[in-house]
Write a protein that binds this DNA or RNA. Sequence first.
DNA 1: TGTGACATGTAAAAAGTTACATGATTAT
DNA 2: ATAATCATGTAACTTTTTACATGTCACA
Lengths: 182, 182
Amino acid sequence: MRTLKYALLGLIDREPITGYDISKEFEKRIMANFWHAKHSQVYPELKRLLDEELISFELIIQGEKMEKKLYTITPKGHAEFVAWLLQDEPLGITPKDVFRLRTFFSDFMSVADFEKHLHSQLDKHNLKKGYLESSMSNYYEAVPKYGSKEFGDYAVLLGAIMREDSYIAWLKVCLDAVSHQD
Amino acid sequence: MRTLKYALLGLIDREPITGYDISKEFEKRIMANFWHAKHSQVYPELKRLLDEELISFELIIQGEKMEKKLYTITPKGHAEFVAWLLQDEPLGITPKDVFRLRTFFSDFMSVADFEKHLHSQLDKHNLKKGYLESSMSNYYEAVPKYGSKEFGDYAVLLGAIMREDSYIAWLKVCLDAVSHQD
DNA sequence: TGTGACATGTAAAAAGTTACATGATTAT
DNA sequence: ATAATCATGTAACTTTTTACATGTCACA
C-alpha cells in the first residue's frame, strides 16, 4: 500500500523539508498523533522517491561544511499525492492496543493488580492529554480557516485530544466496574 | 517484544483452542477490536511456542480423517503469560490512522472532496458501531462479574464502542468546522 | 456435484525496529 | 571540553502481509 510514501510526499508538498525534520515530525510533532516512522525507514524511502522522480533535493550547507538535503516535490509527485488523497479506502484492521489485550485477559489478574494497571494508564493518558491541550492552546486560538495548513494541524490535534478523552473515560468506567465488586 | 506470543498464550490459557479458531478470533471476533494476525503468522508462532514448551497439543479427528490440533497451555507457559500480564509498559507509539493522515493534508482537497470523505467515514464508523452494539446487547445484559472471561469480553467491547463514538464525534466536529466556511 | 466453511501449513516480499556508524554544530 | 542536538546513512533482524499450496467436510 506504501502509505509512508504518501505521508512523505504530503509533508514535502506542504513545504520543502529535510529528512531529519521529517523524522522529527514523526517522532515528536503533530504527525506523531497518527503516523510514525524511524529515520532508518525515512532515509531509504526518500531515496526511493527520488529514483521514482517524485521528489528532488537541493544541497544546503549549514555553517562550515555540514550538508543537508532540502527535498521538494515534483509535478509528478504532486499529481500522485493528490490522486492518493482523494481515494476512499475501507476501514482496515483495528489498531493494536496492548493494554486492551491485557484488559481482555484481566481474569488472570487480581482485582488489585488490574486496578493498579488502570491507574497507571490513567496517569499516562492524562499526561498525554495535557501535552496535547497545551499544543492546542499555544497554537490555535480559534478554528483555523479551511484550506490552510493550520486547519489540518487543528483537526488532527482535536482528534487526538478526543481520542485521549475517550480512552480516559473508558479506563474510568473499567475502574468503576471493578471497584463495585471488591 | 513478541506480543503475539502473549496474545496466543492468553487465548490458549482461557481454554484449549485450535489454530483455526485463534485466527477466527483475530479476524472476526472480539479480539479483532484490539489485536490482529493472519493465519500465516499464527501457525508458525504456535510451532515456536511448542518448541519453547509453553504449549502442547492433542490431535483431534473430525469426521473421517480431518485432523485438528487442540492446543493447551503448559505450567511454564502459564507462568510466562501471567508474568507478562502484570508488566507495566510505557504508552508506546500512537497507532497509525490513514484517515487522520488524509485529514492532516486536507488543504490539498476542495471542501466538497473533504466533506465527501467525512461522510464516507461517518457511514463506515456508524456501521461498525452498530455491529459492536448488537454484540453488546446480544451477549451481556448486565456488567459481568470481575474474574470471569465475560468481564474481559465486556470491558474491551465497551472500549471499542466508546472508541467508535469518539471517532464519530470527531468526524462530526470536522464536518461542522468545514461547513461553516463554505 | 459444487460451493463455502473447516483446517493447516510454507514462501516470498514488504514494512518496521534495533543496532551500527560517522561527523558537524551549538550551547553550557 | 563536553554534552545535546543536528544531520545522514546502512545492516541485521523482527514483524506483518500476500500469495502459494493442499485436503476435508457439510450442505444444497
